[in-house]
Design a protein around this nucleic acid. Structure first.
Lengths: 345, 345
DNA sequence: TTGTAAGCGTTATCAC
DNA sequence: GTGATAACGCTTACAA
């Protein structure tokens, strides 16, 4: 950065003081006279002095930057998490710098290098879909840079986590479908190498079994790409089964909406012919008709929690806090897409 | 950042070479012997050396960081712009750090300080709604940090801009409504102190006048908050007018969707009773029923263009490029919400 | 209460 | 080809 930058040296010269006095005054160090401090601040303002945090970071060997790695920012869930992180971070005097892995392992690895190289104080991350192995994060353990995973977390690495109980949430949604009379419930599932999506499938299965309903693998459509298009594709495939499902639990809201559109196109009624439920409570879930029953996964809260945990670890690093895992409670949001007369067979 | 960080000093000691040799080798400087260079790289890898970019930035007095200020990342438009910026930036060896102003002037000012303090190489920004006066950006002129505004730009500051022709786009949408037979066209407008929204209103007006249709101020609902809720509220208000509109042009897709929902709730048919058009071509515009006619504002392209302009300015700083303005072409996307029989009176 | 001086990890300018 | 050394702007023992 070129241009005439004002430094503490300049202030020192102008005031016939040493740079250390200036530095201390600018930090309101108690040992510096109130008068001096005031004058230093005044001159600093007058000359347009701005601290150079690059220099300060180098000297202190730490930054106040929190690096956040999200798969994609254009997914509502993650943008809410980010807002939650920022809410806490700014309040605590940290800056937040956001990186998108775009669900690519290669980019995720590149980002970890960038973060290391930039000496971030701590990291909050949600793993890319492609990521199976987290060894590229392990460096932060030896560098003693605190790390908090959220949502899509790693089990092969000592690190803190903030998650929801996907198994429980999925099982509650499925139970809700059963309670409204569904007996042949299908599932549009996410990438099964990712634990949250595997748990959602398991939760669905568990609810079926608990209610003495058979689990039929043909009723599960798996995709690694939880988009509108894949939701529609999955629904079309399920509609071709010899016996139609009367309910579909989708692993997220995007696929649920795609499914709803496909089902409507097939001239079936929702929820009467087929009830549909999603997962995440995105704003679009109230735009689609019928409005979508879903799970609120507390994205904002997740971001706030992750930030609080991380900052505590940064600031009490010496205390050597053992990594901790927080599981957030979720809410079932019931809307028109499953609202039908409870039927008892 | 504590922990045992390996530095070039360590490498130098281990190899009985000077730090300057190591530094040069790591940059593949031609003056260093091929053999030495190879060995240095090998040892670096072996010891897990990572460059400390904070130190390097301080010494070189520049970073390769591009700061992006967006109002909110959870607005689709901005997340697409960011993706466009990243696409180009990473290719050119720059990192991107994202900040949200949340449309608050206060936060925007704070962010400019953070960016200055962190010595970013350049800045891409979309002004907060609250921002009328851009003096907090002027510091970057004297610091010679290049600045590119996109979408919501400032006219009271010498800086590059990448925008769309809002006037033209709005006038084309309105013309399209007229072509499908609308004669009483209303407008749900954005914050009129923001130039893009003022231009959209003007474009709408111009199209009316061009077609000898009267402009009726009662047909314009203004809001500074282009949300679903405000769109619905605006539509409800318009539906109370003595003479109903037969078309509504909304300043963005969110308000258009809110309007569609309100109109449907009032048991009016879209597009037959009232045609509705939006602006931005968000993914939701294909989810709503009927699907929304809108303007594609080329968000991704805008991000790419902004990044290209910025990087050119960073790298050819000495050339002292005059600030430039790029206007991107937009596309009218016609969908069901306006697809009705062309009527000629 | 203030000053001196060393050093953070790197790069750039000389010199050899 | 390689080395010595200063400097980037700031913080912090230690001295005074």
């Amino acid at each position: 950065m070129p241009g005439a930058r004002v430094t503490i040296k300049d202030l020192a010269k102008r005031m016939n003081l040493s740079v250390s006095t200036i530095s201390r005054a600018l930090h309101n160090h108690p040992s510096i006279g109130a008068e001096t401090t005031r004058e230093v601040w005044q001159l600093a303002k007058q000359l347009g002095y701005f601290p150079n945090s690059v220099a300060s970071n180098l000297r202190r060997r730490k930054t106040n930057m929190i690096g956040v790695i999200v798969p994609r920012i254009d997914i509502t869930f993650h943008s809410y998490v980010i807002s939650g992180v920022e809410e806490i971070a700014y309040k605590m005097g940290y800056n937040v710098t956001i990186y998108q892995s775009r669900d690519s392992l290669e980019r995720e690895i590149a980002i970890t290098s960038i973060l290391q190289t930039n000496m971030v104080a701590g990291i909050i991350a949600c793993l890319a879909l492609e990521t199976q192995n987290c060894s590229h994060f392990s460096r932060f353990n030896s560098l003693r840079v605190p790390l908090v995973f959220y949502d899509r977390v790693s089990n092969d690495l000592e690190a803190s986590k903030v998650i929801i109980d996907d198994f429980d949430a999925a099982s509650r949604v499925t139970q809700h479908l059963i309670d409204t009379g569904c007996r042949k419930i299908a599932h549009i599932a996410g990438c099964q190498t990712t634990s949250i999506f595997a748990s959602r499938l398991e939760g669905y299965k568990a609810a079926l079994l608990r209610n003495n309903l058979a689990f039929d693998p043909a009723m599960v459509y798996c995709t690694s790409n939880l988009t509108y298009e894949e939701g529609a594709k999955g629904a079309r495939k399920l509609l071709k089964l010899p016996e139609l499902p009367d309910g579909i639990f989708c692993a997220n809201d995007y696929t649920a909406i795609g499914a709803i559109q496909a089902i409507k196109k097939a001239n079936l009624k929702i929820p009467d012919d087929i009830a549909v439920a999603g997962f995440s409570n995105y704003p679009v879930s109230t735009i689609i008709e019928p409005a979508l029953t879903t799970i609120d996964d507390r994205a904002f809260e997740m971001g706030k929690t992750a930030a609080r945990m991380l900052i505590r670890q940064i600031e009490e690093r010496d205390a050597n806090i053992a990594s901790e895992t927080v599981v957030l409670r979720t809410d079932l949001i019931i809307r028109e897409s499953t609202r039908r007369e409870p039927v008892r067979p």
